[in-house]
Design a protein around this nucleic acid. Structure first.
Lengths: 342, 342
DNA sequence: ATGAAAGCGCTAACAC
DNA sequence: GTGTTAGCGCTTTCAT
């Protein structure tokens, strides 16, 4: 096992019979080298299998070629699609992406941000809901501010108040749309399967729901909002509780598709037929929503596009004031919602 | 915009009134510092918001704190779950992970490997099928060999012949199991919705199918194997072709769940009722498989576990000969398969 | 236990 | 156009 180290720039320069400066310029495509030398250097480099050390290059003052992406959990299809968008843009630009889980835990998020900062990434994209309580994310905010002061760039998806460019999913209007839809079908005994109220995403979607309800002369406060984890299992537990505590419910609005999938599973296990005995709606329109049983009525958000937008924003020159890009949303009516039985 | 750069080790050392050597030792937890000094340094560092520069650290000879993960497409649930496992282990070990898309394209794969090598990652995990034709991946193999010779570690998931530690999903036996299941239901006019035959995963799963068929006195060569992209859309196209070219088919075995989802969608659009008029089986048991309409009969592979295993292998001391870890598989019978109608 | 100093491999001034 | 050289911020001998 040779443990022979990789060729360095000196090796290439020597083999090509030029100085390391010339070699460096030739390889980074900078001006100030004759085509003849540039060509030879590149040839020799390819022959030797030379690959420049990113650490040395970055340390020496070259700009960083990597960006960071933080998601709550890559297994959640919502984040998967966002990540896909980010990776696409990064690949186009020849950027490397470092990805980290935050698990919706502020401490873990802080640790991940620190790691990215230590890696001197060019930009950080943070996706996923923040917390309603601003104090919880104060340490992260401070860290991000320092990062930006030192020339780093930050873009967030779906959270506010972080002093950075933001892509804002249409949670409020989406919450209104899906609730209007359920109301228009004739439902009045509606229950919400919600994630933790501390998440801004949950708060925003519920606020939208409240708007729709008020327009119909009702109030969210009078309806059951069952709080569980913002996951498939959380949806299952929420549905079970709704069945148990509010048996006359005719429609469940889940605050994301993942929970809706859990709701569907719970209802099936309890022999409740959707949509005949219970309507179910989701939020996000993840890729599988249309393939579920029954196909899920939901609100479509352009997740992959949000990921692309966010990285694009972060790669742009910073503006004096944080930029905001709001997305649109589309109500997608499929088979899981229907009028209540008389 | 201050552009004020981040505090460096010198700043910490100065503020604590010690040499940078002492500060370095204190922060990296190395031996040779009095507890008093170590404590003070850490305190000051925290106060200043000091975070060591990974590039400088790595360049100076510290070991790299990041690992690379290559997937075909993070949006594919198969890879999503693998990635999830990798991220979990990485987080536990305090490692950063760089992720890249290869898009099942050898050139792009080579570029991604180079990027990871340039980043001096400690280990590279490559997931996803390789190509049956060894020549196609020769350049990547060479690059990986050089990386390993220089002390880097590599682990692959689901491919062979790369001279590295490997986690091998039970594709052959799984292909046999799912085919045996369909045969045992009484199906004889079976069609396969396959990905490109050039992928080893496809080849292995088909080989398993052939074994099962031969045991039943049949041969794969006599059955339709429709080749399309190894994706949801590919599944849709495959199903349409099967309906068109082999209308008497009673069961479709898709070679991964993503294709099976596409098959299900195509059949629904054509008014073919599953499983009454057509049985459908998948492979992988991705998270949503059980929530599909109808719930999918498939072969479960421990994807997240495979991701964990792979990174764990890559983080271990290298062995003289490449290690191999084979996974198990479980036939999961749900609602999408049933006996053919008489 | 502590500090001084020599690099790690590269880029970017700066000379020529 | 080409080469020389001074760092980038850190870890690690090697003295003390």
């Amino acid at each position: 096992m040779a443990q022979r180290s990789r060729p360095r720039l000196v090796d290439v320069a020597q083999a090509a019979g030029v100085s390391i400066a010339a070699a460096s310029r030739a390889l980074s495509g900078a001006a100030g080298v004759s085509d003849a030398i540039a060509g030879r250097v590149r040839e020799v480099a390819a022959e030797l299998g030379y690959v420049a050390d990113v650490h040395a290059r970055t340390l020496a003052g070259g700009t960083s070629t990597s960006v960071g992406l933080l998601v709550h959990e890559i297994g959640d299809p919502y984040f998967t699609e966002i990540a896909s968008g980010v990776l696409r843009v990064a690949a186009q630009r020849g950027l490397t992406v470092q990805i980290g889980h935050t698990g919706r835990d502020p401490d873990s998020e802080l640790a991940q941000v620190r790691a990215l900062v230590a890696n001197r990434v060019r930009a950080i994209v943070i996706s996923g809901s923040g917390f309603v309580d601003a104090r919880v994310q104060a340490p992260v905010k401070r860290e991000l501010q320092a990062f930006q002061d030192a020339g780093g760039r930050v873009a967030v998806i779906g959270r506010h108040h972080l002093g950075a460019d933001a892509v804002l999913p249409d949670n409020l209007a989406g919450g209104r749309s899906i609730t209007e839809h359920v109301l228009s079908l004739g439902h009045r005994r509606i229950a919400f399967a919600a994630g933790p109220a501390a998440l801004t995403t949950v708060a925003d979607r519920l606020a939208g729901a409240d708007q729709a309800l008020r327009a119909a002369g009702m109030r969210l406060a009078d309806l059951p909002v069952v709080e569980e984890a913002f996951t498939r299992d959380g949806g299952t537990r929420a549905a079970l509780r709704i069945l148990d505590e509010h048996p006359r419910t005719t429609a469940v609005v889940a605050l994301n598709d993942d929970m809706a999938i859990g709701v569907l599973a719970a209802l099936r296990s309890q022999g409740v037929v959707v949509p005949q005995q219970m309507s179910v709606a989701g939020f996000d329109d993840v890729a599988v929503a249309e393939h579920l049983s029954p196909a899920l009525t939901t609100v479509r958000l352009p997740m992959a596009g949000m990921g692309e937008q966010a990285l694009l924003l972060a790669l742009k020159e910073p503006s004096a004031r944080p930029r905001r890009r709001s997305t649109d949303h589309h109500l997608v009516v499929r088979e899981s919602t229907a009028p209540p039985r008389p």
